[in-house]
């Protein structure tokens, strides 16, 4: 009886690890999608509603499920300057949002010219980041489609294999 319980525990732990890795891939894709739609909204608020940057950032953060990047940047932009505040916000949120180093680099690029020039230039800056982000989003979705099922399957099967060998 204790062997069966041990085997089940081993299998469930391994399956949970596989599901966790798969969910991180999914979360990365969702984060990038949410970020892209939040950027579209930020562009609208800056270019057409003439909203102040801090308020526009908070409004864009509301568009995401987890808008911590925008909130953090809005909180710190007056103290650190928008470039530094944005970069810190992206780096600090990268692990929670499951972003890779390349994603961080792409998203950080937004802070270089954010709030420094006129609305037309802001629009161009956001459009450039959105274009770069679309490639990252496509890559994230492809990674999830390719590896999501693999991680889940491997998690369960590796647990089963270990249980079979130890039982």
């Amino acid at each position: 009886m204790i062997r069966i319980i041990g085997a089940l525990m081993l299998m469930s732990a391994s399956a949970a690890a596989g599901v966790y890795m798969s969910s991180r891939l999914k979360k990365r894709a969702d984060s990038l999608d949410g970020f892209a739609s939040a950027l579209e909204y930020l562009k609208t608020r800056i270019c057409f509603a003439d909203t102040a940057l801090e308020k526009a950032l908070r409004a864009a953060g509301d568009m995401m499920n987890d808008g911590r990047i925008f909130y953090s940047a809005a909180d710190n932009m007056n103290a650190d300057g928008i470039k530094k505040a944005w970069r810190h916000a992206v780096i600090n949120s990268a692990d929670t949002l499951c972003l890779t180093a390349a994603d961080v680099q792409t998203v950080s690029a937004l802070g270089n010219r954010l709030g420094l020039t006129d609305a037309e230039d802001q629009k161009r800056n956001i459009d450039a980041v959105l274009a770069a982000l679309s490639a990252r989003r496509a890559q994230a979705h492809e990674a999830y489609d390719k590896n999501g099922r693999l991680f889940r399957g491997c998690g369960i099967l590796c647990g089963a294999l270990a249980a079979l060998l130890l039982i």
Partner: peptide, 20 residues
């Protein structure tokens, strides 16, 4: 036990090879 290992390894092989 050997049959079980064989089945699991076969499924893992298929899973991994289909994922490239």
């Amino acid at each position: 036990q050997v049959a079980g290992v064989g089945i699991v390894v076969a499924v893992l092989y298929q899973l991994l090879s289909r994922a490239g």
